[in-house]
């Protein structure tokens, strides 16, 4: 961007009253995203937030940018069309686990596959909130919800594994209340060329309160999650003394200083390594810490830029088209 505009967080706060439940995890996500927008080097009028249906999908109303609140599950498809039409825009999708993984699953996987330069932020609270408490495609087996009074018998998606299966060029995971970490990931996503997908562990205080608490809670997160960073060894724990090594092809938790383990023995995160990204996506609590940060980031052509390139290439070869010559081209004949 040639011109720089200095914004403060307030510039991205709209005049609409925020109507999420008190204590909802969405507030901290909104705050993190508004802060991140001041750091992405984009003019406010060149930013558009697109959402589907659900609590998370109220998001665009609260951002003082362009915004589209659309229909259930379709945000990724609508955002794709917008970005292809105008590649200069910074296009964001705010969505939830029901919106993106159930009704919108098809659009999500195809957006990730195509690598359109849109940024998808998925608020995962493992429940349908706006329809008041039905299980979603990420709800764990056995959980009692309004539609599963005897427990869920569906097997849930792991969003990270699904995204990686689509060859997503950017996947990251964060916790709603870790605003600083989340803000940095949003900025990283903005700078990535291609589809980005951030899964946020979001707490619904009404229908699935505490669902991520065991690993994402403020008291437990240091010991039960691991923030991965490219090129750095996988260390975690309150004391920063635990780490991940590979035994065979499986990750294992070790303690630095025990059994002769030093920092050098630990796995070093490589965000371009597909196997490592997938391994991170499969790490489940309590056997292993839950991974956070950027699992995978690779560079690949983005769809809309390839579209532009084709247009430029054909136009330079054929010259800009006009209807009059098209109508008179090919086989024509005169009568009279």
């Amino acid at each position: 961007m040639s011109e720089t505009t200095t914004y403060t967080k307030k510039d991205f706060v709209s005049d609409q009253e925020v109507r999420w439940c008190p204590g909802c995890g969405d507030y901290s996500i909104l705050s993190a995203v508004q802060t991140a927008m001041t750091q992405i080097g984009k003019k406010r009028e060149d930013i558009c937030f697109v959402s589907g249906i659900g609590c998370s999908s109220r998001f665009p109303y609260y951002m003082n940018t362009f915004g589209m609140h659309t229909i259930h599950g379709r945000a990724a498809a609508i955002a794709s069309g917008l970005k292809i039409q105008n590649p200069n825009l910074s296009v964001w999708v705010a969505t939830g686990d029901g919106d993106a993984m159930a009704i919108g699953g098809n659009h999500l996987i195809h957006a990730l596959r195509r690598n359109v330069d849109i940024n998808i932020i998925m608020f995962n609270n493992e429940i349908y909130g706006l329809t008041k408490g039905q299980y979603s495609p990420t709800t764990k087996r056995g959980v009692i919800t309004k539609t599963t009074p005897y427990g869920v018998v569906d097997h849930p998606f792991v969003p990270a594994s699904l995204a990686l299966g689509c060859d997503a060029t950017f996947f990251a995971r964060a916790i709603d209340t870790d605003v600083k970490h989340l803000t940095s990931l949003v900025v990283e996503a903005a700078n990535h060329k291609g589809t980005t997908f951030i899964e946020i562990f979001q707490n619904c205080v009404i229908f699935s309160d505490g669902i991520h608490e065991a690993y994402a809670g403020k008291a437990t997160r240091d010991d039960n999650t691991i923030k991965v960073e490219h090129g750095k060894p996988m260390i975690f724990g309150k004391e920063r003394n635990k780490g991940i090594i590979l035994r065979g092809t499986r990750p294992e938790v070790v303690t630095i200083g025990e059994n002769g383990i030093t920092e050098k023995d630990l796995l070093v995160h490589d965000k371009t390594d597909d196997n490592m990204a997938y391994m991170l996506s499969r790490m489940k609590f309590p056997e292993l810490p839950v991974a956070l940060g950027i699992f995978r980031q690779v560079s690949a052509p983005s769809y809309e830029m390839d579209v532009e390139a084709q247009i430029a290439q054909v136009t330079s070869k054929k010259g800009a088209g006009n209807m009059k010559s098209l109508l008179h081209s090919g086989q024509t004949w005169n009568v009279g």
């Binding site: 659309t70 379709r74 498809a77 609508i78 794709s80 069309g81 970005k83 039409q85 195809h110």
Partner: peptide, 21 residues
């Protein structure tokens, strides 16, 4: 610009996005 979408719904939805754009 032609966009061969993943389904009929994405076909019209992408057009709605482009129209807003």
């Amino acid at each position: 610009k032609t966009f061969q979408a993943e389904d009929e719904i994405a076909g019209i939805c992408s057009a709605i996005g482009a129209s807003f754009g």
